[in-house]
Design a binder for these strands. Structure first.
Length: 315
RNA sequence: UGAAAUAAUAACCCCGU
């Protein structure tokens, strides 16, 4: 079973859930007796492959075979629910786990909060947070980052900032993910000035912004109608030797719409192509919107052709 | 070298409020 677990885990990490499954059944056919570890490993492979149905089916098979599900098994199942956007199922799984007398740990709760966050259930995420406190568990940076992200998705930027304060009071050190989530929360709330304060604060704390951080900041300037500041952020990012990606350019192009800057949008697109950054359907849609907002029909048709040539079809 | 390693970023549309 140990060798089977290693092999299954390797397949899971490669994102190949079919091979993981093959290994599981092939080893079983050869007489390997699967246990909690092997079952959990395959459930994890299914989770990573977004195969919730298979994961739940295997879980039933596991119980039928008399193999004990432990905290890792349940946490992995919760992660499978999270990855497929099934927050209700995640909560159900948690309830089943509790009924079975299995005690949740920090990872279990963090996964559950993440499931609520992905399902845009910020209130539920905060509720789960109170459950974990009641269990005497100490929230870590993952907990707070997931909670802040949940607030971001729920449009609760003030709450996100409050959570950051609570995090500091608790002595939990915020990292680049936490700060990026905070900036994103401010961006979504239409608070670019607040986002900038957070951005400056993180640097003052010695946390280096990465591409995601800059992208969130550029999004904030876009939402605030500040193309000028978004462009400044791009040059800062390049000065920091961070490679702008598809999201960076798509956000910048989007920021050109409100400013009616089709020329700038086209320049950014050219720069993007020049640097070998792949454009996707969102990039082209954004570009089309800029052209549309500028009333440039011929240009819009041309952009549509570019997208088509790039193998992207209208949706 | 047996299992969960759990957290962050883009446009539009839709849906609700």
């Amino acid at each position: 079973p140990r060798i089977a677990t290693s092999l299954i885990t390797r397949c899971a990490n490669d994102g190949d859930w079919r091979r993981a499954e093959e290994v599981f059944f092939a080893t079983e056919a050869v007489g390997v007796e699967h246990n909690t570890y092997t079952y959990s490993a395959l459930i994890n492979a299914y989770a990573r492959g977004r195969q919730l149905g298979h994961a739940l089916e295997l879980f039933r098979r596991m119980k039928a075979a008399g193999v004990t599900a432990n905290v890792v098994t349940y946490s992995t199942l919760i992660t499978a629910c999270e990855k497929t956007g099934q927050w209700e199922r995640a909560l159900e799984t948690f309830a089943v786990m509790t009924e079975a007398g299995v005690v949740a740990n920090l990872t279990t709760f963090n996964s559950l909060i993440s499931a609520c966050e992905k399902g845009a259930q910020w209130e539920q995420a905060l509720e789960v947070h109170t459950w974990m406190l009641r269990q005497g568990l100490v929230p870590d940076v993952y907990t707070f980052s997931a909670l802040i992200s949940a607030c971001e998705k729920g449009g609760q930027w003030e709450l996100a900032l409050q959570l950051y304060k609570r995090m500091q009071d608790a002595g939990v050190e915020a990292n680049v993910v936490t700060y990026s989530a905070l900036i994103s929360a401010c961006a979504k709330g239409g608070q670019p000035a607040k986002a900038e304060i957070v951005f400056d604060l993180m640097r003052a704390k010695g946390v280096e912004p990465n591409t995601t951080t800059y992208n969130a900041m550029i999004c904030a300037w876009d939402k605030g109608g500040r193309l000028d500041r978004a462009l400044v952020a791009l040059s800062e990012m390049q000065a920091a030797r961070l490679q702008p990606d598809t999201i960076t350019y798509s956000s910048l192009i989007s920021a050109c719409e409100k400013a009616g800057e089709l020329q700038m949008a086209l320049r950014l697109f050219a720069q993007m192509m020049d640097q070998g950054v792949p454009a996707n359907s969102i990039t082209y849609s954004s570009l089309l919107e800029v052209a549309g907002a500028s009333g440039e029909q011929e240009k819009a048709v041309q952009i549509y052709d570019w997208a088509f040539s790039a193998g992207l079809y209208a949706n």
